[in-house]
Write a protein that binds this DNA or RNA. Structure first.
Length: 893
RNA sequence: GGGUGUUUAGCUCAGUUGGUUAGAGCGACUCGUUUACACCGAGUAGGCCAGGGGUUCGAAUCCCUUAACACCCACCA
């Protein structure tokens, strides 16, 4: 047996275990210094050709509200893998970073922090300017933390192009789009019912309202003693603003009252009411009393009814969440809560309250501060999604230049026509459903942190433009824009638009948008709206949606549950590569995944395994000679063929967004084939410098997008190499180098079977055994690889022939028609061996029966494809041969 | 009320257009310091693919249905 023990003299030996902490920061610095995160530099340094395909992506900008969580880490890992893959492929690859000012979220957070510091009412005490200074300070600190975290994860973002949703350039884009929309009549100011958060003191968009289930009281009451029937409500205090009662026109009980008006004197001691009875199909006759009190000012549904029926709108709740003057002097100024108690009490005293019932109810709350929302009428700016306008230059399929269309239709067309592809495609439904339910979008916010609305007023004049008009007396609107207005422009505002920049021409539309499915409506849909309208083009070609990262038990991670796993802590403990793998492998697109420290630790183990695999290979490689990777032995052919196959599959899976699959297959190959078999064989066969070097380099390249740090660390130890991140991706094709993979599998299986029998018979690992093999047509193959058999199965004496009689005192098995007998003199327990053989026969017999039944079925033979039938026949022949030999063995005992 | 997803080994999940004797990782168990790695190696056990119908020569995979869990949307007073 040949044993080669060679350590290249020019190599400093790698440490035994890979310690991520020692390498990561230094490697990131080297990457940054190279400038290669920037595609322009790649072209300059010719790692990418000028006319190479473009691959561009924007980083979904994290909110500057604090620190990154595991969801961000997953996003960074997946996007970086895509980016590194494309960069290595030689594409002109841009990944553009930035952060989001997240208007309400950030302002709320800073208010909270200031209040914790003892400032009772930050906005009142500090005033607009001072308050905004505080927010900016916080945002800056938060931004720096976030950038640092992105770097820790290894994200190869082009920092030279970093953007912020609230910086000057983005502000110009915002003003430009606002004006265009206003001029097209798509932005309009109006007095309408809006979602109002009394704590934030601002409007909210429909999708910024969340619902919390709670148990509520339903009160059934009459407006007055002489009112003909009762109605039900969960909010008695709003009834002070009722202007109608709606009933179903088919309802026999109430039909006769439709059209009549009832005067109510001082309802519950408050305002006088004028209640008109109206008919509306939407009223459910079987719910409550079948009659519905209509409060146009404080319910979206009632507001619509009021519009239809020309009812007056009386506002009885104000912006602070207190009762307004129109509620009556007794109520004015009371909080909603107190007013409710008082109305109920007054109704009870005057005997108008008929019943109180408990019922489940959905309370609408602010998504940021969980304060209950008050729907109330207010003068605000809206984007009209159903209003027709004339389309400008258009690349949107199905919508031509000059054609009349609406924003909704644009959003639908871009996805329906397949111009934008959403992965997984089931989210198409969510997208279209969201658009179907979309109402006009209220974009003005009464908060200070954000893009100021580019509108100026003077008396009753309104001016919309880029700057205040020259003449004096103009006052800018004090409101700011919904944060999604600016993030909706993100794919092109970051590329310099509205200036006609090279970046815009080169990188827009972007190739892929990768983000969590939870912000599909919030952000993705709005980007499609803004981009199709503004540019007449799509913002991105593919939307890839990842799932949420949950805790071990499948719960959302949250501070209050105390189940948050901090990405930075995991990077510190297990390394960025392990953290990345734990977020990319073992899940499927669009589905939530569970994360635990044990999972990350498992991938840390793999990181170390790869390190050691490479460490061992490097000890065997003579880098000075640089031999060609020429396969000589069966194992060589096998590993090269498998390597090429895995390389080609990895490319394929990455391009099809199957990152998990790609990584898992690559891991299985690296660990179970390369390390467990080929490297062990190389210890026996020796002299593989050329092949090992080829495998080493290829495997490091293939792993680099997934685990950039450890691969780069190893790469830097290979003499004469520069940066791995700039190396060419191995674009290998699946090819049959010799068709000998199957032959190798036979050897492998024989070894596994011998090992298994050894374990079963408790033959000590150190003890060598004698084996005789009846190999049939494979005799030559086995003889060629006898050293491998001996080495890996620990065989002392081996006899190979075409056929072999079962020696006494031996146990045997079959593999692909090859009979292997192990001499176990003194060790064989014949009773046990009998049982073992019978058990195997017991497995093969029913298998044969199934195959026979299948093949005797004429329908199967007739209908199934030829290959399948042939395949089943082959299986049957093999199984029958096996059965015969097993029976022989059994008889010979 | 409408919609989507999930249900496969003790746990976490794969299973690509229907054709395997249904796979992996972790965990469990038995061995083991053999010239990279104990963050390791060799081996073993463990599954009526949620239940019920159907389509098909053939179903974990397609259709219908029931159930449990999760999420999204709408919101009825």
């Amino acid at each position: 047996m040949l044993i080669v023990h060679k350590i290249a003299v020019n190599m400093k030996e790698l440490e035994k275990a890979y310690e991520a902490k020692k390498y990561e920061d230094g490697i990131y610095e080297k990457w940054e210094e190279s400038g290669l995160f920037n595609p322009d530099v790649c072209v300059e340094k010719s790692t990418a050709k000028k006319d190479a395909p473009i691959f561009s992506m924007v980083l979904p900008p994290p909110n500057v509200t604090g620190v990154l969580h595991m969801g961000h880490a997953a996003m960074l890992a997946i996007e970086d893998a895509m980016i590194r893959y494309h960069r290595m492929k030689g594409d002109r690859t841009l990944w553009l970073p930035g952060t989001d000012h997240a208007a309400i979220a950030t302002q709320t957070k800073v208010e909270k922090l200031l209040m914790e510091k003892g400032v009772k009412d930050p906005r009142v005490e500090l005033g607009r300017e001072k308050f905004l200074e505080e927010v900016d300070k916080f945002a800056k600190a938060s931004h720096d933390t976030i950038i640092n975290q992105c770097k820790k994860m290894g994200s190869s973002l082009d920092w030279s192009r970093e953007a912020f949703t609230l910086d000057e350039k983005r502000n110009l884009a915002v003003r430009t789009v606002f004006k265009k929309m206003y001029d097209d009549g798509l932005i309009e100011r109006g007095y309408r019912i809006v979602n109002w958060c009394p704590r934030c003191h601002s409007t909210l968009a429909d999708d910024e309202v969340e619902y919390k289930e709670q148990s509520a009281k339903i009160y059934i009451f009459k407006y007055s003693a002489d009112f003909p029937f009762a109605i039900a409500t969960t909010r008695p205090e709003t009834k002070l603003g009722d202007t109608a009662v709606a009933v179903n026109p088919k309802d026999k009980r109430y039909k006769k009252f439709i059209g009549k008006t009832f005067k109510v004197k001082s309802f519950a001691g408050g305002a006088d009411l004028n209640i008109e009875v109206i008919g509306d199909e939407a009223v459910d006759m079987n719910f409550g009393t079948g009659a519905l009190g209509v409060t146009p000012a404080h319910s979206h549904v009632d507001y619509e009814m009021a519009q239809k029926n020309n009812l007056p709108v009386i506002k009885v709740i104000d912006e602070d969440g207190n009762m307004a003057a129109d509620a009556g002097t007794v109520y004015a100024g009371l909080s909603v809560k107190d007013a409710r108690k008082k109305v109920v009490e007054n109704l009870r005293v005057s005997n108008l309250l008929e019943k109180e019932e408990d019922a489940p109810n959905n309370l609408s709350v602010c998504y940021r501060c969980e304060t209950p929302i008050e729907p109330l009428p207010s003068k605000q700016w809206f984007i009209k999604v159903n209003k027709e306008f004339q389309m400008g230059p258009s690349k949107i399929m199905g919508i031509k230049e000059g054609q009349k269309t609406t924003l909704k239709k644009l959003m639908q067309a871009a996805v329906r026509e397949g111009q934008i592809k959403i992965i997984p495609d089931r989210f198409d439904k969510t997208y279209f459903h969201w658009i179907d339910n979309l109402h006009d979008w209220c974009i003005s916010r009464q908060i200070w942190y954000g893009h100021r609305i580019p509108v100026w007023y003077k008396g009753d004049q309104t001016y919309v433009g880029f700057e205040a008009p020259k003449d004096s007396g103009w006052q800018q609107d004090s409101d700011t824009l919904d944060t999604w207005f600016s993030s909706g422009l993100w794919t092109f505002s970051t590329l310099g638009w509205p200036d006609k920049t090279d970046d815009f021409n080169n990188y827009h539309p972007t190739s892929v948008l990768e983000t969590g499915y939870d912000i599909l409506p919030f952000w993705v849909a709005r980007m499609i709206l803004m981009t199709t309208y503004t540019l007449g083009d799509i913002p991105f070609e593919t939307v890839y949606l990842h799932g949420l990262v949950r805790d071990e038990q499948g719960r959302k991670m949250s501070k209050s549950l105390g189940n948050v796993i901090d990405p930075l802590a995991m990077v510190e403990k297990f390394g960025a590569d392990a953290t990345r793998l734990s977020l990319m492998l073992g899940n499927t697109p669009g589905n939530d995944s569970r994360l635990s420290e044990e999972k990350i630790a498992g991938f840390r183990n793999f990181t170390n395994k790869l390190w050691n695999i490479c460490r061992y290979m490097m000890m065997q490689i003579d880098f000075e000679k640089s031999e060609p990777a020429k396969p000589v032995t069966l194992a060589d052919f096998w590993i090269l063929e498998r390597l090429h196959e895995i390389a080609s599959d990895t490319s394929k899976h990455i391009e099809q967004f199957n990152f998990s699959f790609a990584g898992e297959k690559l891991r299985d190959f690296t660990w179970n084939e390369l390390a467990d078999w080929y490297l062990e064989i190389s210890k026996i066969e020796g002299n593989k410098s050329g092949i090992l070097q080829y495998i080493l380099e290829t495997i490091l390249k293939l792993w680099h997008p997934f685990m950039p740090f450890v691969t780069e660390a190893i790469w830097s130890e290979i003499p004469g190499k520069k940066l791995l991140m700039a190396e060419k991706w191995p674009q290998l094709k699946k090819e049959k180098i010799s068709g000998r993979v199957k032959d190798f599998e036979i050897i492998k299986n024989i070894i596994t079977n011998i090992r298994s029998l050894r374990a079963e018979y408790k033959v000590e690992p150190a003890k060598k055994i004698s084996v005789s093999i009846g190999a049939g047509k494979f005799a030559g193959l086995l003889k060629d690889n006898v050293e491998i058999l001996q080495g890996l199965a620990r065989i002392e004496k081996i006899q190979i022939d075409k056929s072999m009689k079962k020696p006494g005192n031996s146990v045997g098995f079959l593999e692909s028609g090859v009979e292997v007998f192990i001499d176990l003199s003194g060790l064989v327990d014949f009773a046990k061996e009998k049982i073992r053989l019978q058990k195997e026969i017991g497995e093969v017999e029913p298998y044969i029966a199934v195959l026979k039944k299948k093949l005797s079925n004429k329908e199967f033979v007739k209908n199934a494809p030829k290959e399948i039938v042939a395949n089943e026949n082959a299986k049957l022949a093999e199984a029958e041969e096996m059965l015969a030999k097993l029976n022989d063995q059994l008889k010979s005992i």
